[in-house]
Design a protein around this nucleic acid. Structure first.
Lengths: 163, 163
DNA sequence: GCTTGACTCTGGAGTTACTACAGGGTTTCC
DNA sequence: GGAAACCCTGTAGTAACTCCAGAGTCAAGC
């Protein structure tokens, strides 16, 4: 099959498939005479595997490790367990961080009542003089991301997205 | 004061201060004869404000809005409230997503017992054939980030940060 | 006066995981 | 045989920095 069909069958944008090939997650595809990539069931399975890992928010590096174990099935899978445990740890930690953040934001939000002028806005004042509840920057140490970011998975620019 | 002192007093890396100036969050600093930036208390306050916002995981765009309100204190602060409410909403949504993710990962983790060979590793098998519990990619729609990422705030490689 | 070292400057590249082109070539269908 | 749909490569952009090279500035010590 061609790249478009593979894209459709796995729900992956065509650009992303080519990107995975560049990054070495997918092997270089064979080509037709007209230089089109051709794929078979093996590629499809591998791509589906990668996409499932990505849907679990694993990094490319983590996926690379898992793929290596998939490719050499005789080795012990201890490292797979360890990787997953670490990943779960990161997610749990990020959840804790975000919950703290949510509390802080709600405290901050409570500072301002509706309809004031910005000069007396409790939120701006609080952010200006720095309440005790607000942590200093540099909270996260792990490989966890900030709350926002540009690369939110592979969702296209418009579709009911951002703030 | 010079940039190094400002950096120290606000806990902000020097590079980041220059970056904020480039981005227009901080005004261009005056210069000494030797072309060194010089700052005063106004700069310090503004930078502290920015850093407090960043510690609350606000984007530069969000901070820009808040700064604009700070600079024009006669306007109503309704938009500040709205911005913060939206931000809280995003954080809450991301928490929910991550909690789902955590559950999925724990289910996956339970598939494999210790010390098997990769060929019979429950995790790899689950990721290969694709269990029903695993969502497809493209879960997040908002401006919230993935669980991992390179730019984790501004924490320098090693220093035992501020967490 | 000269050197050493700490500090600062600019500009550019790297980070993640894509996404979005531009400017072409190929296939397919009517 | 011509248009539409598909595919190709390569490059640049995203967020919020971080890191580096190569050079200039400044204060202190000898």
């Amino acid at each position: 099959m061609k790249i478009g069909q593979l894209a459709q069958q796995t729900g992956t944008p065509v650009d992303t498939i080519r990107y995975y090939e560049r990054e070495g997650l997918l092997p270089r595809a064979a080509r037709t005479e007209g230089n089109y990539r051709i794929y078979d069931a093996v590629h499809l399975e591998r791509l589906a595997f990668i996409r499932r890992c990505r849907s679990l928010d694993m990094t490319q590096d983590e996926i690379r490790v898992l793929l290596r174990f998939r490719d050499t099935p005789s080795e012990s899978c201890e490292d797979v367990n360890a990787l997953l445990d670490a990943h779960i740890g990161h997610v749990a930690e990020r959840i804790r961080e975000l919950q703290q953040l949510e509390t802080q934001l709600q405290v901050l939000r409570a500072c301002c009542e509706e309809g004031r002028q910005a000069a007396e806005c409790g939120i701006l004042n609080e952010l200006s003089h720095g309440g005790a509840e607000l942590t200093t920057p540099a909270a996260s140490e792990s490989h966890l991301a900030a709350t926002h970011a540009g690369g939110r998975q592979h969702v296209p620019p418009r579709q009911g997205g951002g703030a």
